[in-house]
Each structure stands twice: as C-alpha cells, then as structure tokens.
Amino acid sequence: MTIQVKAEAISLRKKNKQIVQNINFTIEGNKIVGLLGRNGAGKTSLLSILAAFRPATNGRFLLNGEDVFENPRAMEQIIFVRERNVEYETDKVSRWMDAAQQSRPNFDRAYADELAKRFRLPQDSQVAKLSRGMQSALHVIIGLASRAPVTLFDEAYLGMDAPAREIFYEEVLRDFVEHPRLIILSTHLISEMDGLFEEVAILHEGELLLHEGKEEVLERGYRLTGDAEAVDQLAENKRVLKTESLGGTKSVMVYGELVEKDERLARSHGLEIGTLSLQELFIHLTEVDDHE
C-alpha cells in the first residue's frame, strides 16, 4: 500500500496567538520533502502536530486515513527528530541506542553503530556531556536507524559543523534509497539541502505558501542576463524580483513561467537564460507579504 499522510485544516493557537493557520496538504508515496520557512514561521509547531506530540487547536493529521493524535498504532510509525534539553541525562549514548532499539520495531543497531563511527560519536559518553553537534548527531542517528515509515527531522543539523552536515545529507539519501520512506526535513539552510528534496513546502507566518514538486517550484522563475536594453524590453510588464547591472549588462530575476515566445526572443537577442535557485525563490516568496 502506498503511504499517505494528510494535513486537514490544521491550526494552532497559543495564548491567543495564531501559530499555524489552516494547513492543508497531502503527501503520497515515499519521498523526501523539504519544509522551508524562516525563523518563527511555525515549522516546529507544525511538525510537533504531525508527530502527535501536541494536539492541534483545529484540524487533524492523518496517516493512511487514521488520525495520529493519541493513536499508538499510528505514532509507532512516526519518529520526530528534534533538538531537546539533555542537561540532566546521565545515561550513556549506548543506553539511548538500546532504548531506541527496544521501542522502534525497525531499528537497525548495526547501522546505528556504523553511523556513530561516521559521526565520531563516542557511545560510552554521557549524553549530557556531549557537545551540541554530537547531541544533534545522536538524534539524527536514532532518527535514521529507526527507519520509521514517517521520519520528521526538525532542523536536525543544528550545532553540526559543515563536515557533519555533509555526512547527514549523504546518509539521508543513502538510507532513503535502500529503505524508502516518507522523510520530511525542515530547514532554512536551503542552498545546502535543496538537492535532497523531491517536494517542497514553504511555510510563511503560519501559513502554507506552497507545496509542490521541487522542479515545478523551480520553474516559477528564471534569470535573464545580457544587453541592458534587450533585458529591459523582455522584462517589461513582468514581475521582476531583483535587478543587477554592470555597465551595459543587466541581469534580472523574473517571477513567472518562461513562455516559449519570450524564450525565443531572448535567444535571438543573445541573452543568457538561467534558472533561479530554490533559495532565491524562497527569499522572494517569504518577503512579498511584508510589502503587501
């Protein structure tokens, strides 16, 4: 059976403050989804609801048609990897691994040990004494080795240095290929992680701005570079996100699909047509509301 998760009109209010509002989406099949949002956009709150860690004020989250909240059978299939306070954890790392192995039916201890080696995580250390990066590595290792059908990583890279993050991304892909599942990764490190995603969801000020295949999102804009006059002519009446000029050369970021007529025109003027990065589109899309 193809896995399906569905958010139905999820809202969360905290002390009269709207944290997330009317979130609707469906994800079908095993894939890696990027949940993008600026700080305070509501990513952690939304993921907490998906993981059944907290109830929504309104709406519900369904896994294969079943509401996950207070549903042990559904919750067993979801793992939520997040930063947490381990100040008073006197247990050793290996003890945490044991606990995960006992509570997670698909937990692969050999893989967890292999990951611990890759991240250079000492298993005989006390969890409380780990550096922040190593704490993140521990959470990530348990998240990956649990092989839960729905795996949620909430900015799981926090505190990791660049080489450790690289290992994290590599392992997400490698283990996904060998053990396909539904993985949602929240992040604002978009330029580093965009290659991982098949689908992208953008959360902005508590609302879901878009949820689409990544390639479709990337087709929402393009860049034109070349002779300033020709660029201006083509960019006229279009939504220009950003303009850069150097001498007689101009480069514009255009929001909107590149239609064939314009493409031909641009080529005939010798203009260079380029793609926008997910990060550039994200920055723009999460800025718009500030002005409107």
């Binding site: 590599e170 892909l173 290929v177 290659g195 990544k214 390639e215």
Partner: peptide, 18 residues
C-alpha cells in the same frame, strides 16, 4: 544507475530519474 548518481551528486533519486 540511479543509486550511483544519487550517491555521486548527492541529489534526490526523483531528480536523477527525471
């Protein structure tokens, strides 16, 4: 293979398949 390309370029298998 898709898997080789995924590992080499560190990109999503769906992108490779496309």
């Amino acid at each position: 293979s898709t898997n080789q390309l995924v590992a080499y370029y560190k990109i999503n298998p769906a992108t490779v398949l496309k």
